[in-house]
C-alpha cells in the first residue's frame, strides 16, 4: 500500500529541532449543515535538513513514528515561497547596511559640492584677474600660473568668457523652446486656430477624423484632433516654429 501523503503549508518552523508544523486542509462534507466545509489539521513533521521555512508548501509522507507526536516527514517542497522570503529578508538587511556604509564613505551629494567648488574657483578667478592688472612684475608670474591652472581645470579657453560655465535652472525653460513641435505645441495650435491662412488645412485634418460635419465640431475637439495630428512627426506642420523665444 502506498504511504499516506498530504500537501500542506508550513506554519511554524525553528521552534523545535528538526521539526516543522504543517497545516493540511481539505474539504469535508458536513451532514448537519448540508454543505462542504474546510477542515484543517496540523501535523508535526520531521524535517531532517531543516530547510523548510514558514510559508513553504510541502508534501508530507507517513513514516514509522519518530517520536510521540511525529509520524510524518517532509517528502518534497512544492512551492518554496517561505525560503524565498527568508532569502529576500537577508538580502534586504545586507543591502540597507551596505547603503549606510556607502553613505558614510562617499561624500554626500558630490555633484552639488562640485558645483559649489566651481563657483568658488570662478570667484577666485575674477579676483585674480583684477589683481594681475595692479600687480608688480614679481607677482605676475605666480598669479598667471594660478589663473592658468583654474582655466585648465574647467576647460576655459578665455577669461572673461561668453560661454555658459554654470547651468542655471532658470534658463531651462528658454532652452526647452528649441524648435521642436512638442515644446511649441501651444503656439502652433493658437496660430492654426486663429490665422485665416491655415483654415483650409484645419478643415482637411478635422474632417478626416471627426464624425460630425466641420461646423458642428466643438472647438476643443478640433484642438485635440489638431494636437494629435501635429505631434505625429510624420505629418506636415504648416506653421513655422519660432527658434528662439
Amino acid at each position: 500500500m502506498a504511504r499516506q501523503n498530504f500537501v500542506g503549508l508550513v506554519i511554524s518552523q525553528g521552534k523545535m529541532q528538526k521539526t516543522v508544523k504543517v497545516r493540511v486542509s481539505g474539504r469535508v462534507y458536513d451532514r448537519k449543515i448540508d454543505k462542504e466545509i474546510i477542515k484543517r489539521k496540523d501535523y508535526l513533521v520531521h524535517d531532517e535538513g531543516e530547510i523548510c521555512k514558514e510559508g513553504d508548501i510541502v508534501r508530507i509522507e507517513s513514516i514509522p513514528k519518530r517520536s510521540s507526536k511525529k509520524a510524518f516527514a517532509v517528502a518534497e517542497i512544492k512551492v518554496n515561497k517561505g525560503q524565498q522570503f527568508a532569502l529576500y529578508q537577508d538580502m534586504a538587511k545586507e543591502r540597507v547596511s551596505q547603503e549606510i556604509a556607502d553613505r558614510l564613505n562617499t561624500a554626500q551629494n558630490a555633484q552639488a559640492e562640485g558645483v559649489l567648488s566651481k563657483i568658488a574657483d570662478l570667484r577666485k578667478l575674477d579676483s585674480l584677474t583684477e589683481q594681475v592688472v595692479n600687480a608688480s612684475s614679481e607677482e605676475i608670474d605666480g598669479l598667471v600660473n594660478e589663473i592658468e591652472s583654474i582655466k585648465q581645470k574647467y576647460n576655459i579657453s578665455q577669461w572673461p568668457t561668453t560661454d555658459e560655465l554654470i547651468e542655471l535652472e532658470v534658463n531651462h525653460e528658454a532652452k526647452a523652446a528649441d524648435g521642436t513641435r512638442v515644446n511649441n505645441i501651444k503656439y502652433i495650435l493658437d496660430e492654426l486656430l486663429s490665422q485665416a491662412k491655415y483654415e483650409e488645412f484645419v478643415k482637411d485634418v478635422v474632417n478626416e477624423k471627426a464624425k460630425k460635419p466641420f461646423e458642428e465640431v466643438a472647438s476643443s475637439t478640433k484642438k485635440n484632433i489638431l494636437r494629435k495630428y501635429v505631434l505625429n512627426l510624420e505629418n506636415p506642420c504648416p506653421v513655422p516654429i519660432p527658434h528662439s523665444v
Binding site: Q84, F85, Y88, Q89, M91, A92, K93, R95, V96, E99
Partner: peptide
C-alpha cells in the same frame, strides 16, 4: 514584488 517589499520595509524600519 517580494524582493522590493522586504527592502522597503527594512529601510523604513517596519517589519513583516
Amino acid at each position: 514584488n517580494p524582493e522590493r517589499y522586504f527592502y522597503t520595509i527594512h529601510k523604513l524600519g517596519l517589519a513583516d
